[in-house]
Amino acid sequence: MKKRAFHFIEPYLYLLPAFSMLLLFTYYPFVQNAILSLFTVNKFREIKEFAGLANYVRVLTDEKFLRAMGNTFIYVFTTVPISIVFGFALALLARRHHRISIAYEALFALSMAVSASVIAMIFQLAYNPSMGIINKLSGISVSWLTDPKTALLSLIIVQIWSNIGYNFIFLFSALRGLSDEVLESAQVDGAVGIKLLGKILIPLVSPTLLFLLVKDIAYAMTTASLTLILTTNNGATGQPNGATETIMSYIYGKAIIGTNYNAAFAATMVGFILAAIMMVFSLILDKKKVNYD
């Protein structure tokens, strides 16, 4: 009997460590956040009363949050496509094996190993109005990170740089993985240059492109690191004046720096829903365009 009982529960036992962590740090916080966002809570997170959608209404009519949403969308629609295009272009350049190709492959991919905080510190110096290399070389005088006109652009540039290595390495391994016969027969059929790219290469690596698209969107929709490191001063996130505020830095400011949990929890749900919609949207694109053959 004992043996049979063990036989029955054994497969579940192997799942236990993973699932206990998954429940505690993914599903529980998600459900908890969803529930609490419908209530008014005090600064000890004790439920005071049912609030319905009032927290959502308050957040969605908060000008600062709308600005944060706008910035986040700008962030997604610039960093994601640009860094994928760059990564793809580099992958095309490195596609063929050459004597020293391992050297430039490594250089193209290296930004993947560089953390957000290190690259942020490097660019903070590069953007410095008086001693930074960017103003020195270009001869212009711009306060990149403190001018409302350039602050968000400055963060976008850093983010694109960070993403290139990751996108490159995926697309590069996808292109290298294509069989020579497919490419040769395509070339025999007269597919070269743009035609080869559009008709053969892009369709063949489309699963990788889709994977990167979903991953990059999810990341960009929920990022706060660069804003917190580069444009948050004295507890005010997303300086100057909200120009670089993202949804996540707004949440961080509300929940961790302030203790306005009502706004933070509702904003978290809005952030999640927007990210999910974007991901589902790219999956629909997948059904129509992506070639898995």
Binding site: L24, F25, Y219, F272
Partner: peptide
């Protein structure tokens, strides 16, 4: 599906609640 489904919840969305835990 519970494992795969958890991938659509970006980790950074959960940091505040996880901080409380």
């Amino acid at each position: 599906y519970l494992v795969v489904g958890s991938m659509i919840i970006p980790a950074d969305v959960l940091v505040v609640q996880n901080y409380f835990t």
